[in-house]
Simulated scan of single mutants.
Amino acid sequence: MFIPCEQAKALIAHHQGQLVDVRTPQEFMMEPIPGAINIPLHEIDQVAAQKLDKALPIVVFCRSGQRSYMAQQILMGQGFASVHNLGPSMAWYQCPDI
């Protein structure tokens, strides 16, 4: 299930949430979301512990929501407690900034 864009933006703006783009570096460069960090899905299990803070919420997204769902499952399996799936990157633009 996807987190509504309003809730995702509130986590980022008010709770030091980490916005993580799990698309490929090429996709990330073509359509970046300001403030997002790129950790491609195929790397997330190796680098998440080094690049992400387990104490802060995480919002993951990709192009369609499938890779971000897989990333969410991987991160939760690594002990990240607050991981939310925004789904497709276009969902970020479906509500105003907070």
Rank of each mutant, 00 (worst) to 15 (best):
F2P: 06
F2V: 01
F2C: 02
P4Q: 02
P4H: 00
E6N: 05
Q7F: 03
A10C: 04
L11N: 00
L11W: 04
I12D: 00
A13G: 02
Q16R: 14
G17F: 01
Q18K: 07
V20D: 01
V20H: 03
D21H: 05
R23W: 08
T24A: 09
P25T: 03
Q26D: 07
E27D: 13
E27P: 13
M29L: 12
M30H: 11
E31I: 04
I33R: 00
P34S: 05
A36R: 00
I37N: 04
N38T: 08
N38A: 06
L41Y: 12
H42D: 14
H42Q: 13
I44M: 05
I44Q: 03
Q46M: 14
A48S: 15
Q50N: 15
Q50K: 15
L52A: 11
D53E: 12
D53Y: 09
D53Q: 14
A55V: 01
P57F: 03
V59I: 12
F61L: 04
R63L: 12
G65V: 07
Q66P: 08
Q66S: 15
Y69P: 06
M70H: 13
Q73H: 12
I74G: 10
L75E: 08
G77E: 10
Q78K: 15
A81M: 13
S82H: 10
H84V: 03
N85E: 07
N85R: 06
G87Q: 05
S89M: 13
S89Q: 10
A91C: 03
Y93L: 09
Q94D: 13
C95K: 07
C95G: 10
P96E: 03
P96W: 09
I98P: 15
I98S: 13
